[in-house]
C-alpha cells in the first residue's frame, strides 16, 4: 500500500504540473479531468469516502463537462495562443515561488502539528446519538455545524447569481454529430438510473457516505445528460417554480432553525423526537437546490426548457 500511495502522490504532482504548463486549453482540461480521478483515489486512501464520492460527481464529472462545454463554446482560434508557462515572465515566476514557499511551510507545519486536532471530532462522535443520523459526517454537516452548511448553500447561490449577472452567457448552441441515434438511447437508459442513484445517495447520507451535496451533484448530472443529448436547453426566462426550488434549501434550513427556537431555545437546535424527520426534510430540499444551482451554472441561464420550446 505504501508503494501505491507513493505512486499516487507522484502522479498527482505530475498532472498538477501538466495542468498549469499545458500548451493549449484542451490539453489542460484533459489533464485536469484525470487529476480529478486521481484526487478521488487520494481521498479513498485518506479514508474519506464522502469526499471521494463528491470528487467523483463534481470534480471529475460535472466540472469536466463544464470545462469541455466552455471550450466548445469559444470561437475558433480562441485559446490557441500559447499560454505562458509558469516560469516565463516576472509575475508568474513570483506566483510560482510564492506557492512553492507556501507548500513547503505547510508541509513543515503539518509535521510539527500536535495530535490534538481530533478532539472536536471525538466530541462529535460522543454526541452522535443526539444528532438524529448514524453517519458522523452527515451529523456534523447538518446538525453540529449546521451554520457552516447553510452558508455553503448561500455561497453556491451567490456563485449562480454572479454567473447570471455576467449577462453574456457563452452561446451553447453546440450540437451532436447528426448521424447517430445512440445519445437519445443513452439518455433513456441512463436517466432513470442517475435519478435513482442521486436520490439514493441523498437518502443514504443518514447512515453511510453520501448526502445532499453528492446526491445533488448526481441529480444535476441527470439534467446535464438531458441537455447534452438534446432534450433540454437553457432558457433566458425564469419561472417562479424554479426560483422557489433554488431558494428552497436555504429557506427550509433557516426556517427549521428559526421556527423551533421557542421549543428548543436556540437557533438551529432540534427537539429530540423530531430530529430525524427534520434532517431528512432539510437534506432533500438542500439536494434539490444544489442540483438546480449546479445545472444552471452549467447552462449559464436563469431558466430551463424543453429543446425547441418557446
Amino acid at each position: 500500500m505504501t508503494a501505491l500511495d507513493s505512486l499516487l502522490a507522484l502522479l498527482l504532482l505530475l498532472l498538477a504540473a501538466r495542468c498549469v504548463s499545458a500548451r493549449s486549453l484542451l490539453q489542460a482540461i484533459v489533464a485536469f479531468i484525470v487529476l480529478g480521478l486521481l484526487l478521488a483515489l487520494s481521498w479513498v486512501r485518506l479514508e474519506a469516502p464522502d469526499l471521494a464520492l463528491a470528487e467523483a460527481a463534481i470534480g471529475a464529472g460535472l466540472l469536466g463537462v463544464l470545462l469541455l462545454g466552455t471550450w466548445r463554446s469559444l470561437p475558433l482560434g480562441h485559446g490557441n495562443e500559447r499560454i505562458p508557462l509558469p516560469w516565463q515572465g516576472l509575475r508568474p515566476a513570483l506566483i510560482t515561488t510564492g506557492c512553492t514557499v507556501l507548500a513547503v511551510l505547510l508541509t513543515v507545519a503539518l509535521h510539527q502539528h500536535p495530535e490534538q486536532a481530533a478532539m472536536s471530532g471525538l466530541a462529535a462522535l460522543d454526541q452522535l446519538d443526539a444528532a438524529g443520523v448514524d453517519q458522523p459526517v452527515t451529523a456534523v454537516l447538518l446538525n453540529f455545524r449546521a451554520y457552516d452548511t447553510l452558508l455553503e448553500m448561500g455561497v453556491l447561490l451567490m456563485a449562480l447569481i454572479g454567473t447570471l449577472m455576467l449577462d453574456s452567457p457563452l452561446p451553447r448552441d453546440t450540437e451532436l454529430p447528426a448521424r447517430t441515434m445512440l445519445p437519445a438511447t443513452l439518455a433513456q437508459l441512463f436517466l432513470p438510473l442517475i435519478l435513482l442513484i442521486g436520490l439514493y445517495l441523498v437518502w443514504a447520507g443518514a447512515y453511510s457516505p453520501g448526502g445532499a451535496f453528492q446526491g445533488g451533484a448526481v441529480l444535476a448530472g441527470a439534467g446535464v445528460l438531458l441537455i447534452l443529448t438534446g432534450f433540454g436547453e437553457g432558457d433566458g426566462r425564469d419561472g417562479w417554480v424554479l426560483r422557489a426550488l433554488l431558494a428552497g434549501g436555504a429557506l427550509v434550513f433557516t426556517l427549521a432553525g428559526l421556527l423551533l427556537i421557542p421549543v428548543t431555545g436556540a437557533f438551529m437546535a432540534y427537539p429530540q423526537g423530531l430530529v430525524t424527520p427534520i434532517m431528512v426534510l432539510i437534506e432533500f430540499s438542500l439536494a434539490l437546490s444544489i442540483a438546480l444551482s449546479l445545472l444552471l451554472l452549467y447552462t449559464g441561464t436563469p431558466g430551463l426548457r424543453r429543446r425547441g420550446e418557446r
Binding site: L176, P177, T180, L182, P183, T185, L186, L189, F190
Partner: peptide, 9 residues
C-alpha cells in the same frame, strides 16, 4: 453501455 456509446461518438 457508457463505453460503447463513448467509443461510437
Amino acid at each position: 453501455i457508457a463505453a460503447s456509446v463513448a467509443c461510437h461518438l
